[in-house]
Design a protein around this nucleic acid. Structure first.
Lengths: 156, 156
DNA sequence: CTTGTATGGTTCGATATCGTACTATATTAT
DNA sequence: ATAATATAGTACGATATCGAACCATACAAG
């Protein structure tokens, strides 16, 4: 049962397919955020966790702007997220010695510990999904997702 | 490649793979939301568009709770989204004749028109991506995404 | 050195998100 | 019929998001 308004133009149906993909992605993002935040305490958000996790994995001492780009959010949103982390004592912000305008973000011990316990808190949920969506599925999905992300990034 | 006390344990690395998938999905969701909202006017959000689009495609006369479930958001968030649509004259809310507690949501002509013009506004961006991410990629990605969504839905 | 412009970051205001608590109606058990 | 419980939806408050405007420093041109 196709929509009758337009003839079955391949460009339209391909675009519809893309909408469907993005729609699924939006719902998955919503669900995974809700699941993660249900495992975090103290009102920590996915964004807070993501920043801590990123710095543990790729090293700290990065700038707020680098962080904003890594998560593809406006710098003003990242500024707010970092203020929340600093207020909770999970990161510290130092002036950038090479750029008087800039700051550098460093993890505190509390930040590293919180990230670890958050990982422990969410791991059972993730591991429970692996029998249904394991290595093969993930390895099939990742290149497609990366390609889509790069395209969307370029389309900005 | 040793499997020792250190965390190169298959369960852990599979979990890491899952984190990577969800991370990509989060960024894609962020990017596609930003792109869509940059094409909408009057402060319309992705959520507003999503609700209109859903009703055009699957029929209106649904309840707020059905909408909240379709988008996997809390009912209180959907309540707010619907209030925004009603305030803009894009939907109307009627009492549900079969349930004195409930309401039914209907598209207005303005709502249908707005959805059409939003589709037109975003279509060029989507079509521009098709040479890079077309039917084959979308058809490969969709079943994986649907499976992941169902899993996350069940894990709630 | 001054001036113009670009860049890193914050402030502010409008709106979105969502948990808690609440109201009203429906359903179920007795 | 009544009481207990469940469900649809809203009100409210705390926090998140993000664009516009802003400040400070950096950099480039003359």
């Amino acid at each position: 049962m196709k929509r009758s308004a337009s003839p079955d133009n391949p460009e339209i149906s391909d675009a519809q397919l893309m909408f469907d993909v993005l729609n699924e992605i939006g719902i998955i993002s919503q669900l995974s955020r809700a699941l993660l935040e249900s495992r975090l305490q103290d009102g920590l958000t996915q964004q807070h966790f993501g920043v801590l996790n990123h710095m543990v994995r790729l090293g700290d001492g990065c700038t707020p702007l680098e962080m904003a780009r890594a998560f593809q959010v406006p710098k003003t949103s990242m500024s707010h997220t970092l203020a929340g982390l600093e207020k909770r004592g999970l990161v510290t912000m130092q002036p950038n010695p090479h750029d008087g305008r800039g700051k550098l973000i460093y993890l505190t011990d509390a930040g590293r510990e919180l990230r670890s316990s958050a990982i422990s808190a969410i791991a059972p949920d993730v591991i429970a999904m692996i029998p249904q969506f394991g290595r093969d599925d993930a390895n099939a999905a990742l290149p497609l997702l990366r390609k889509l992300r790069v395209l969307l990034d370029e389309a900005r």
